[in-house]
Amino acid sequence: MEQVQLQDWARYTPAQRFQRYGYFALTALVVAWALGSVNIIWAWVWDAPTQMGDLFSRMVPPDPTHLDQILSALWETVNLATIATAMAVVLALPVAYIAAQNTTPNALTLWLGRFILVSSRSVNTIIWALLFVAIFGPGVVAGIVAIMFRSIGFLGKLLGEAIEEIDPKPVEALKACGASHFKVVLYAIVPQVMPTFFAVAILRWDINLRESTVLGLVGAGGIGVILQGAIDTFNWQEVSTVLLAIIALVVAGEVVSSYLRRKIL
């Protein structure tokens, strides 16, 4: 008896195993469908490693002749991200206020707030940028507005959640003191969401720094404009310089934001 059980040992029961095979088969089927019907020219695929190698060999060594222009574009990118984040933070406050269940004035404002958050969050920065380039023309203004529109949803959602999670007891106490609604917000809610406010603003600034490096590819300002120009003129050595500059910017952004987080929180 003992012997038989030992021999029959298996990792899964038959039903479990069947289910697992089912998932595997389903996944394989979906992948096969995607692979079979996707519009790819396979000759290009087999050629890809050579092409990549070729492109890479044309990128080295990086060409620093226009480094001053690149650096000033980099600075413009930083400014663009910073200003847009600052403005988005200010605009996100009222949105968070009406999107939080415990502070929103009524059901209508709650849904308005949620609508703003969802539409802002579901549309990518680049798509916002396409729209605002069409409106304001190419340049940093379109970039700033695009980043703002995307950031409001992100900041508003996280801030709104922070407002919903506050301790309601101080609110009750200040109401009992006869404080007006605005003063209750000022003394009982604002201090409680302050840490989240700073953490979220710093986090979004870091993300916006990355996002603003690509805005230029759709004409919305920053370092991407130079990248696009270098690519269009097949100046691959300058492309690699720009790419290195972007890595440096992103790493520097991460260092600064983690420093600020430690300092303030």
Binding site: N39, I41, A48, M52, I126, T213, I247
Partner: peptide
Amino acid sequence: RSFHPVIVAIIFVKAVGFGPFAGIL
């Protein structure tokens, strides 16, 4: 992680041509 997908995409588009293959890479 450093490069935004759009930057990676534009490089791949130049290397392997327009279309979904660049997107997949």
